[in-house]
Each structure stands twice: as C-alpha cells, then as structure tokens.
Design a protein around this nucleic acid. Structure first.
Lengths: 194, 194
DNA sequence: CCGTGACGATAACATATGTTACTAAATCAG
DNA sequence: CTGATTTAGTAACATATGTTATCGTCACGG
C-alpha cells in the first residue's frame, strides 16, 4: 500500500543523497494534493518538513489510512510499482517541504541497491517491518474499541495526537469527530477524580 | 502473521512431496487445538482435508482472524520463525486430516529452496500476495460496514459462508452472531420482492 | 429411541455510534 | 485589523450493534 523506510533504514541515506540532484523540491501549503485517488503515482515522495496523510473516499466521506512526518518517504506502493490507479489520495496536512523522485530514478536507485551485499536483508527487513505495521493495525481494528484505539495512539504515538487535527484523528480511528469528542470527554472525566 | 501458499505456488509441491516422509499425519475431530495462543509454534501445518480457523481471545470473546481449507498450509508466522509466543490459537472447525512439519525440517526445506534460481521471485511473490491479502482485509475493515463485509464474503468467497458455522462467520466479520442473523434477515427481506 | 447439547432465529432492552444543528474559539485571507 | 473559514465541543435525536433470554431444530451418543 504505502511504504516509508528512510527512518528505519538509515544506511540507505547515502543513496538518497546521491539522488538528491534528481529530486524536485516543492514547498506547498496545507491541503495540497500530492497524488489523487485514481491517478497513477509517478513519484516517490520524501518529506523534509511537514506532515501528510493518505486517505480514500467512501460515499463522500474521508477515510484516513495513515500519517507521515518529516524524514520519512512514501508512495502509493502498488500504484507506483505497477503503474496502476492509486486507491487513495495523498495530501499535506501542514505547509510542507517535499522532494519528488520520479519512477525512472527510483528504478535506477533500486538497480544500484540490488548490488549492495546486504540487499536481501534490507528488502526482507523493509518487507517484514511493513508487514508487521499493517498487521498490527488490522489486529487493532479487530480487537480494540475506538476508545482503546485512541488510548493506544496516545500512548504509542503521542506526536500524532499533538500535531494532527482532531477530525483527521477521528477519521483514522474509524469514528466521527463528534464521537471522538465524546471519548476525550469521557476519559477526562475519568481522570478528574485525581 | 499467518502464511499459506501451497495453492498459489504449485511449483513448490515437489518440495512438500519430498518432505512428506518427515511429516506427522494426524486425523483430528472438530474443535481440536493445533496451536494454543501464547505457545511457540513448532510445526508448519498442511491441511489435507477439513477446515481450520485462527483466532485470539479478547476479554473472553473469540475474535476469528482467518479461515483455512484443504490444500493450504499455515503457521503462526512470527511465532514459528522467531520462536515467540503465538498471538493466536489455531483450531479445527471440522474433523480434519493435517500434516505437521517441524521447524527443523522447514528450515532444511527453505535452505534447499534458496538454491532454486527463482527463489527471489518466489519469496517476493509470496510476500506481495500475503501483503495484499492483509491489506485488503484492513481496507475492508476501514471502509465497509458489517453488512457490506458480509456481502463481499458472499460474493468473493461463498465457499466460506456455505461451509463455516455462522457464529464463526460473525466473529470473523466483527459482529455478534445475533447481529449477523439480523443482517441476513434484512438482506432476505430486500430480496423477497422478486 | 431418548436426552443433551450445539446452532440459528427472534425479541426486548441497553449501549455505542452516527447525524444534524448550534456555538465559541482559533486560524486564515484580504 | 477584520470578516470569513476552520475547528472543537455539546446537545438531541436516530440508527447500529451488543447482550441476554427464549425457542425450535438438528445431530449425536448412550
């Protein structure tokens, strides 16, 4: 779906730096669409500054799938690799600075990378990490109530809650923004006995 | 999480057949636990006949994650590979015939397999297919109502609905069995105008 | 053949969540 | 700076879903 590995695999930074001259730098305001649902992803996106979300439309309602922050890279995986219509939109949440690297250059980079002795380990590591992330997300949807999912987010990834507007958080948790307000209210009441 | 690839990668059958002598055949009744949540998975499981489900316990309630049928193999992936406690239980739904292949032999098999020229393609293919499956499942949970998920199951994997008891289906869809009854009832009423 | 238990349907009620509308505060654009 | 837009909170009501209890059917073992 989406992959981002710069922060997990710093040994790759040398490659990114080598390809910097081929990247297109963009300063964009909030709510800028970087890739539209239904279009073919042409660029791998690296975030230098700011914050981005991936979402798709269901009967006119946004469904947020994931958030991305500085020093991470992403693409609509299947769309980018196989030149298929992307199943979701990628849009900035804050004013951001991003670098775009075209498919051609990414393929070149991959080709170089494949000569790296630890290529298999890197690919397997990336794959396993990505798999674990999606899997944990799925299990959380199956197992947890929205309130539990919110608490988990607060504990495990508090920067997201601090930084992202609440209606996006609600959309990510799978509830309406009204209901997220209720959840927060209920949790606050639970704490006020102290 | 769980992987099963025999049906998708028939070119691997020669390997399974070679290791048949090392497999332990078991005929077991329905509701037999093959691997218990919290224990370390010691065997890769191949289903010759019957039907199996993976589930975990949440506050005393079953949460079914996946179903498996004849000619597919499975394991609790992370548990089997990294010798960790399995996050879920694997249990037969019907009287079944299964073959168990121990970790030692699976590792031997993998070692042989890695000399196969198309090893990378096979691994990537397996990984990509597995990733797509989990991803589709996650998207369905985010996007669809339980009723839509049930319709999707009816259309895309009708054999599951035909073969598996309804409370397991309900658990898999993420609703109570009472509510699944309501959904079926509502759908039946929608159709009775014809 | 009978009793027992598993299964699915249904009803009644409880709780969770969505929807709409309104308000106040914060943020943005000119 | 100021009006317009965005955002978060709240209330009231509607719908979805869970829980418990009951019932009829069916399969199975004694």
């Amino acid at each position: 779906m989406i992959f981002h590995f710069r922060e997990q695999f710093p040994q790759l930074n040398v490659y990114w730096e080598k390809y910097l001259p081929h990247m297109q730098r963009q300063e964009v305001p909030a709510k800028t669409t970087l890739l539209k649902e239904g279009q073919v992803s042409q660029n791998y996106i690296l975030i230098e500054k700011g914050c981005v979300r991936a979402y798709f439309d269901k009967d006119g309602v946004d469904k947020t799938v994931q958030f991305f922050f500085e020093n991470s890279g992403l693409s609509s995986f299947d769309s980018f690799v196989n030149e298929l219509p992307s199943p979701f939109t990628i849009e900035t949440i804050e004013p951001s600075v991003v670098y775009l690297l075209s498919r051609t250059h990414v393929l070149e980079l991959m080709d170089e990378l494949s000569r790296e002795p630890s290529f298999i380990q890197i690919i397997l590591g990336i794959t396993a990490a990505r798999h674990k992330r999606y899997n944990d997300e799925l299990v959380s949807f199956i197992r947890d109530t929205p309130e539990e999912r919110y608490l988990r987010l607060l504990i495990q990834r508090p920067h997201i809650v601090k930084r992202v507007q609440q209606h996006y958080i609600a959309s990510y948790l799978g509830v309406s923004s009204v209901h997220l307000s209720r959840i927060k209210n209920k949790l606050a009441k639970g704490r006020e006995h102290f």
